[in-house]
Simulated assay, not measured.
Amino acid sequence: MKFIFIGLIFIVILYSIILAKNQLLEDNKTKPFTSVSALMLMAIIISIFLSTTIALNAEISASSGHGGFIYIIYPSLYGIIILMGYLVSLGLIPKWKYALGISCVLLNIVIGLIYALIEI
């Protein structure tokens, strides 16, 4: 059941990325906040949820003492930092909004995978 949820979130992220790619041709590349950047922001926010969901699928030992709290907080915290970094870089280099958005989504997913695979 948990893999169905992860798959649905992944499909929503891919849909917003594909929709942003289609609108990229009509986009004004000098403006920082357009429909492409809004779709990429949506994809980044959803990837934060995906990262946390992936991290919660880790094998959490009962003797760890933190009860899975780290697996919720750290991927979300890193995701918010990545989101703020995207917003700052969007203001500085608006021509790269699509590439920056995809890299932020991938970075969020990688963080979730790292927390799912390591034992803390």
Rank of each mutant, 00 (worst) to 15 (best):
L107M: 11
K2H: 10
I114V: 14
L24Y: 15
Y86D: 01
V36M: 04
A99W: 07
H66N: 10
S51D: 00
A20S: 13
T53R: 11
L77C: 07
G65R: 11
F5W: 15
A38F: 14
M42E: 05
I111W: 00
L100D: 02
S47T: 09
L14F: 10
I4T: 12
L92W: 07
I73Q: 09
H66S: 10
T53V: 15
F33G: 04
I81V: 12
A99H: 12
L106W: 11
F10V: 08
N22H: 15
L56M: 15
P32Y: 14
G112S: 08
S37H: 02
L117N: 03
V36I: 13
I54E: 01
A20H: 06
N108W: 06
I17C: 07
G101W: 03
S76Q: 13
Y15D: 09
A38M: 13
L106Q: 02
I11K: 05
F5H: 11
S37N: 02
I6S: 01
L83W: 11
I120D: 08
M84G: 11
T53P: 04
L39K: 01
P94C: 05
C104Q: 01
G67E: 13
S64V: 13
G101S: 10
I60P: 09
P32T: 10
S16Y: 07
M1F: 15
A43H: 01
W96S: 10
I120G: 11
T52L: 09
I80V: 15
F5R: 12
S61C: 10
I80G: 12
L77Q: 10
E59C: 10
V110K: 07
S61K: 14
G67R: 12
Y86A: 00
S76D: 06
L106V: 08
I11N: 01
S16I: 07
I48L: 07
V105G: 02
F10S: 06
L117Y: 06
I118H: 08
T52M: 13
G79D: 03
I46V: 10
M40R: 02
I109C: 02
I45F: 04
L90C: 04
